[in-house]
Design a protein around this nucleic acid. Structure first.
Lengths: 333, 333
DNA sequence: CTGAAAGCGCTTACAG
DNA sequence: CTGAAAGCGCTTACAG
């Protein structure tokens, strides 16, 4: 590959001048400039980013660590981040953590070694692990992690509110015995949605029955199994709020066999869920917007890295999307 | 961030020796080695990859250019590539091209500038555009592009065969008037699946009726519209082979309203399609395996960059997954 | 407006 | 076994 030296030689000038025309810095004779540009064109030269990074300290690339790009929740985030950052000429290194703190940690280290200009981390991280990432003095935005009172930027959605509107809707539809299939006990997201569910019960004066709450792991199969358990209950529920769409898929799977009339509300509104039959009522997260927001905050942090700026804590509101599965008078085929 | 100089100073030795212990190259006194390792630990040092790249020429990062990570076909490829390459300590920069040759070209250039060690490109590229990428002397693997007789590695699936087994299955199920919703005219993938469809007709001595072939763009809505047109036909089909699952989603959308008994076979077997109701019969592409294969070939190319190796042309076989929508005696709820 | 020189943080022969 | 020195390809003051 051609280097600046090559184009300098071809033009009979110094590399300093070549650098100036490339970076539009300082004054350069119009004529010289043309000559340099022609040479660059001719040699198909493009500056070596590694060399640049070494002196500038920046790389024009950022890291995005997500649990799993195969999980339908994350591609939209990745896309949003790329769409937003590539306007500013950034590239994105994507890493899958599988929600494993060890893998996450390894990826973080690698990214740091590659001198990325900033990192976006999505997924649950336990509070005592967060510090490891915040003290690195690297522009950072966390998605979906509770960073209250911690020195990090974050973008989250109001999960408690989401759980609340989901459950309220079911109650207002006339369902009276409402179960909840929640996420893992150590997940704050799961916990918040569960709290929203409890809020609703209290709000409507419904007695809380702990045997109606089943624990899943946010994947299909656990939803399937949880629903089976619920159906085996001596006094089964007539509706269920499921903490995410993936588990709701499992729930639908068992209920479709039973031609059941149990009301269902999911959570996330992942793409393609709308093609399901019957159509799933769900709490929609503004996935793409979350990605955009995170990217914007990261960008701002990168550009202000010298000044002390307050950390941004963005809380986005989810929205109830009413489709078929929650309707009392629904027509299930 | 700490540099090698810092650890050298802390140990009272030269950076040459530090470098040696980091890279396990040459002989180092056991004692010195321990001291260096301790210093590295203490200073939380990790080598600057930009500096390394500058001298070594490699970056331990590769580029993956796909049409769109939001398209459910691609996350599995991205995951497979990461899973395969991260064993070798590579990072992946993901770029979305939207199947736009200009964007693709820009991404390619950026990646080259960042000195990536290799690039995987997925998606259709017209023959006359391929050269632009092959002549750059960069390890390269193309997924899903016809590279016959061109100096590039590629991984593809046998689309003609896929179209053939899809249509054969429909015929064997007893359907006699079989339509085809194909992809764009300028897509070789679409063309090949269409040819497979034609092969079947000929094989079974069925007269080809061009009015039964509708053109879509591989997205839901075009499938929806194409199906509408087919239903408006004076002599409508009793089955349809749809060139990908996304368009089949659109087809199912119109047919579910009509309680139609038209047979359907899709193509791809994208994730979650199996949760659809009725369950879509489709031609499964080994998506994850395609990604693995591409990554393996890239790796081999990177490691043999000096030797002249033959270009690999991998042709993978798709597989028919029979579910509900193609069954003659199917029970549609 | 332009060039010489130092330096970014490493690796790699070459001496010793 | 270890160190001094050159060099990877750039950018950035500093002179001129």
């Amino acid at each position: 590959m051609a280097t600046m030296k090559d184009v300098a030689k071809l033009c009979g000038i110094s590399i300093s001048t070549v650098s100036r025309v490339i970076n539009n810095s300082g004054y350069v004779n119009k004529e010289t400039e043309e000559k340099v540009k022609a040479a660059i064109e001719k040699l198909n030269f493009s500056p070596n980013q590694a060399a640049r990074s070494l002196v500038n300290g920046d790389t024009k690339t950022i890291g995005l660590i997500i649990p799993d790009i195969s999980n339908p929740f994350f591609p939209a985030i990745a896309r949003a981040v790329e769409d937003t950052l590539q306007e500013e000429k950034y590239s994105i290194i994507v890493c899958n953590s599988d929600n494993d703190i060890l893998k996450l940690s390894k990826h973080f280290k690698t990214l740091k070694q590659k001198s990325v200009d900033g990192i976006i981390i999505a997924g649950e991280i336990k509070r005592n692990h967060i510090q490891e990432f915040t003290e690195q003095n690297l522009p950072l935005v966390m998605i979906d992690v509770n960073t209250d009172s911690l020195p990090v930027n974050s973008v989250r959605t109001d999960n408690r509110f989401g759980g609340n509107i989901a459950t309220n809707h079911l109650i207002e539809q006339g369902f009276s015995r409402i179960a909840h299939i929640r996420g893992p006990l150590d997940s704050s997201t799961a916990e918040d949605r569960y709290k929203g569910y409890l809020d609703s019960l209290k709000e409507f004066g419904i007695l809380y029955d702990p045997t109606l709450v089943q624990i899943g792991d946010f994947h299909e199969e656990s939803g399937y199994n949880a629903m089976l358990r619920l159906l085996a209950h001596s006094n089964p529920p007539d509706a269920v709020f499921v903490a995410n769409d993936l588990m709701a898929l499992g729930v639908l799977e068992v209920l479709s066999k039973n031609k059941s009339q149990i009301g269902i509300v999911g959570y996330d509104d992942i793409p393609f869920i709308k093609y399901l039959n019957p159509k799933l009522t769900t709490v929609k997260q503004p996935i793409y917007d979350i990605g955009i927001k995170a990217a914007q905050i990261l960008l701002k942090t990168i550009n202000n890295s010298s000044e002390t700026v307050d950390f941004v804590k963005e809380l986005m509101k989810p929205e109830l999307i009413i489709r078929q599965t929650s309707l009392r008078e629904k027509v299930r085929k």
